[in-house]
Design a protein around this nucleic acid. Structure first.
Length: 588
RNA sequence: GGUCCCGUGGUGUAGCGGCCUAACAUGCGGCCCUGUCAAGGCCGAGAUCGCGGGUUCGAAUCCCGUCGGGACCGCCA
């Protein structure tokens, strides 16, 4: 070993000990005589004091030492002289009086500073030199937090009799869902493996195999455009249980998170325990989204009934064409300028609205774009229904129901950020249940599975397969937190007759079903237990716990938004020989 | 595929028609300095302002295009 101790562990109790440390030069302070070097490793930073009584040779090469050089230092731990302690450092009571210093490796001048948290370089520069970026304390802390989260999950589930099983990365393409990443086969010309979008089928087959309680920290791959909370490859805690109902799965995951968060992120507080449960329909009507941020109010309020006889053309036509009028109340925003309201209108339009009507409640009565159309009885009715006070701004959307919800749901989040309505230390978990089973795909004129095709429809709704598929509810559930979808799961179909009905409704032909899913249907005929599970996202959870704005900050080597690995420069072209072996020709 | 925002020494910012021969901080090089901890002081090197075109007497600054990046919509069972 190059060292006897870590830089972070030394305290006053070590005083008098001779130690050898190895690490990076975090900062240097050269006073001409005495030189201070802050030496850093993963565990912390400690001050190394180089006194001028060392050999001339040592002093000469210490004078050359720069930031991020790798040193091995042998010296004695001393309590610092009175008044010289640094309370900002964990090791601030002590210092190492250097006896010998070896340069294990010098470093070129870095493209950016590792010490200090401010003035981060452009993100692509950070990604290009990710191994340097990860030296920063914040990134190192994120990696450690992530480790703790995953470790807690493993330990918790192990205690609950779960076993961790690895499933293949090279698997089969599926027609449903996200675009697959394909891997060409060398041995079978023209055939491809697919990287798993999730181990969905495999974990269900493990239930058929009697594995009973399975989990995996599973890498998943989806060839879709990235976002702050979406990467081409990401990690889920994939789990599946046999002989359970919906609430058994929810209870397990809720217990896992409720136990974990105080242990790994003590600053974080749960908004409520137990977590609230909303139906999909309820939550969309109230918050305009199926992944609401429950840390603040500003709920959507339906005021259609107040404006049934409105003089306002926009309201009239919405009602006449079967739509709704809903609103949100932005507290204290009545004094918004024309410019600010215009910006909100633009946002509303981007979300699909035709426009945005506003009422500002002021000391001189109503103002805003809808003010002159609002009758006095309507004014009173609205104010009392939405609880608007003087100084508030009411924003209305009038359109078909889905559009209204989406627009106001989007504006609600904009106000959250504008007005700082959400406490960053709160974790507002909730369950969303009773999702629709199918959604009509207008473009392709077919039914799509809202969750995935293995989701169990609610048994009461089975007759609706023939009458009204849109009304079929499924036994699917989501876990949401602070406006993010944190997990998704369902009770699965374990009967091949129901599975067949679903495939047929999705428009899959018999031969297609056989080719794509024959192995699943066959498996279900050999005694499949009732089962269900879910898959909480690891990246998003760690992101929230680490107070990071995107999941790239909690992934060691992420892709950028355009799906590129900036450090290794992937994807990249390959040798013609490789293509030839894979029977692939590039079309120009 | 679409909308919006950003692109100035190694890094982070300022400058937003002429005072820019581009400023500040930090890093880098040199000198001074024995108790600092974002050490300090002095000196110095380092940028044709992403790229291309246009407007103008004059462009880092305005316009168009393009490339790169980010946020969002679509997409993400």
């Amino acid at each position: 070993m190059y060292k006897t101790h870590t830089c972070g562990e030394l305290r006053a109790t070590h005083a008098g000990k001779q130690v050898t440390l190895a690490g990076w030069v975090h900062r240097r302070r050269d006073h001409g005589g005495v030189i201070f070097l802050d030496l850093r490793d993963r565990y912390g930073i400690i001050q190394v004091t180089v006194n001028p009584d060392l050999s001339k040779e040592t002093l000469e090469h210490v004078a050359n030492v720069r930031m991020e050089w790798v040193l091995q230092v042998t010296g004695t731990v001393h309590k610092r002289p009175a008044g010289m302690e640094n309370p900002k450092m964990q090791t601030g009571e002590v210092e190492i009086i250097a006896e010998s210093i070896d340069v294990l490796n010098p470093a070129k001048t870095l493209p950016f500073m590792v010490s200090g948290e401010n003035d981060l370089p452009d993100e692509n520069t950070r990604l290009k030199y990710r191994y340097l970026d990860l030296r920063r304390e914040r990134m190192s802390r994120n990696m450690i937090l992530r480790h703790k989260v995953v470790k807690f999950m493993r330990d918790f589930l192990d205690k609950q009799n779960f076993i961790e099983i690895e499933t293949p990365i090279l698997f089969k393409a599926t027609p449903e869902g996200a675009r697959d990443y394909l891997v060409p086969s060398r041995i079978y010309p023209g055939q491809f493996y697919a990287l798993p979008q999730s181990p969905q089928q495999l974990k269900q087959l493990l239930m058929v195999a009697g594995m009973d309680r399975y989990f995996q920290i599973a890498r998943c791959f989806r060839d879709e455009d990235s976002r702050g909370d979406r990467q081409p490859e990401f990690t889920q805690l994939d789990l599946e249980m046999s002989f359970v109902h919906r609430d058994d799965v929810l209870a397990l995951v809720e217990a896992l998170y409720t136990d974990m968060i105080p242990r790994v992120a003590p600053r974080k507080k749960l908004l409520s325990s137990p977590w609230p449960k909303f139906s999909y329909k309820e939550v969309v009507e109230k918050y305009g989204t199926d992944k609401p941020d429950l840390r603040f109010g500003m709920e959507l309020i339906d005021v259609s009934d107040i404006f049934t006889k409105s003089d306002f053309r926009v309201f009239q036509s919405a009602i006449e064409s079967g739509g709704v009028i809903k609103c949100i109340v932005a507290p204290g925003c009545a004094d918004y300028s024309r410019k600010e309201v215009d910006a909100l209108t633009e946002s509303a339009k981007a979300l699909g609205a035709k426009g945005l009507a506003t009422l500002a409640v002021t000391g001189e009565g109503l103002k805003g774009t809808a003010a002159k159309f609002v009758k006095s009885e309507e004014e009173e009715a609205v104010k009392s229904k939405v609880g608007a006070k003087e100084g508030d701004l009411i924003l209305f959307a009038a359109d078909e129901r889905a559009v209204v919800n989406k627009v106001l749901g989007g504006l609600r989040v904009i106000f959250r950020d504008k007005l700082d309505l959400a406490d960053p230390d709160l974790m507002a978990f909730a369950w969303i249940v009773d999702f629709p089973m199918f959604a009509w795909n207008e473009e392709e004129k077919k039914w799509d599975a809202e969750h995935h095709p293995f989701t169990m429809p609610q048994l009461d709704d089975l007759p609706k397969f023939e009458t009204n598929p849109a009304e079929i509810l499924s036994d699917a559930y989501d876990m949401v937190c602070n406006g993010y979808e944190m997990a998704s799961g369902s009770i699965r179909i374990h009967r091949s007759d129901i599975q067949l009905k679903v495939f047929q409704l999705l428009g899959l032909r018999g031969d297609e079903i056989e080719q794509k899913f024959g192995h699943m249907l066959e498996a279900f005929e050999y005694g499949a237990p009732p089962h269900g599970g879910m898959a909480p996202g690891v990246d998003r959870l760690v992101m929230l716990l680490a107070d990071e704005p995107n999941i790239r900050e909690v992934i060691a080597f992420p892709k950028n938004q355009t799906g590129r690995d900036v450090m290794a420069d992937a994807p990249s072209e390959v040798e013609p020989k490789q293509l030839k072996e894979l029977h692939i020709q590039i079309k120009e």
